[in-house]
């Protein structure tokens, strides 16, 4: 049996670990609330811009944006992988990266080339270890998704699509369902699917004869701008969801760690007490034995 001193040291060290995990749990809980808030606040923009895009697709425009045109042959696929910057959040990143890896294998088997844009440190590390070509990346986003930081990385992907370098673009991230549940999802970003171009139907639209907008200054730049902002809004929304997922996953993981530490401490305390008692009993019996011999 281990000496009581060893056990006592072990208990002490586990107690320290438990203090840390408990603190992290509380930090994650407060950050989670803010992250969920931000995620909800980002929704109206996504909805409105989808409505605008939907109206635009109904209008009889002579210019069709490349983002809307489906390409028959798919040779190169671009993917955007959204992960967290930091670890200690359970299986969150592993899940989304495994989902991505599965798809990459399938595409690889079909002879498609894959290039990736990484948002978040964990995905970046994984992808470069995997040997997939990383064309752009953003890390160090902090606690709030920042449009300013995302623009560059997204533009690299969009430009590649416009230049026919990519034929499809997908995004992988964790969708926030509730505090206990986050699911890794894959969504097609480009070309925009019909689902992306449907308005929410809340606004009564008169079925008029073919109509078009007045564009200022011209149709093409205005439509281009809207489309780019639309994709950016989708990516932004994904990042916001992933951040809310990250914080709640971390909170759950840290709670589990604190609980486990508590169990371990209980068990070790029991062993410690037993060994202490055994030592006392042994000493007593030695004294009694010695006295009997005299």
């Amino acid at each position: 049996m281990a000496s009581s001193r060893e056990i006592r040291n072990k208990i002490k060290s586990i107690k320290n670990t438990q203090k840390i995990t408990r603190a992290m749990e509380m930090v994650a809980a407060s950050k989670m609330r803010k992250a969920q808030d931000r995620m909800k606040k980002a929704r109206p923009y996504g909805e409105k811009i989808r409505n605008v895009a939907a109206h635009m697709s109904k209008a009889s425009v002579e210019y069709r944006h490349p983002f809307l045109i489906d390409r028959n042959s798919v040779k190169r696929v671009g993917i955007i992988v959204v992960t967290s910057d930091k670890g200690l959040c359970g299986g969150l990143n592993t899940n989304v990266l495994r989902r991505a890896l599965n798809e990459i294998r399938v595409w690889g088997a079909e002879g498609e080339q894959i290039e990736v844009c990484c948002i978040g440190n964990k995905g970046l590390g994984f992808m470069s270890r995997l040997g997939v070509r990383v064309i752009s990346q953003v890390t160090g986003l902090g606690d709030a998704p920042n449009m300013e930081k995302l623009i560059g990385a997204v533009k690299v992907v969009l430009d590649a699509y416009t230049d026919d370098h990519f034929d499809r673009v997908y995004i992988f991230y964790n969708r926030f369902v509730n505090t206990m549940k986050q699911i890794p999802v894959m969504e097609q970003l480009l070309p925009l699917t019909d689902e992306h171009m449907r308005d929410d139907g809340n606004e009564a639209k008169p079925a008029r004869a073919p109509w078009d907008y007045i564009y200022e200054p011209e149709a093409k730049p205005v439509i281009d701008d809207i489309m780019i902002r639309y994709i950016e809004a989708l990516v932004y929304q994904a990042v916001a969801e992933n951040m809310a997922s990250e914080q709640s996953a971390r909170m759950v993981a840290m709670k589990a760690a604190s609980d486990n530490a508590g169990n371990l401490i209980d068990e070790l305390t029991l062993i410690y007490n037993k060994s202490r008692q055994a030592a006392i009993t042994k000493e007593l019996s030695e004294i009694v034995g010695g006295a009997a011999a005299v």
Binding site: Y45, V138, I151
Partner: peptide, 22 residues
């Protein structure tokens, strides 16, 4: 509907950001 930008935008600015990310 007004879709307001949160970031300061501009053709050159976006280009610079893209290059940086690359």
């Amino acid at each position: 509907t007004i879709l307001a930008d949160t970031a300061v935008r501009g053709q050159d600015l976006d280009e610079a950001k893209a290059l940086e990310a690359k």
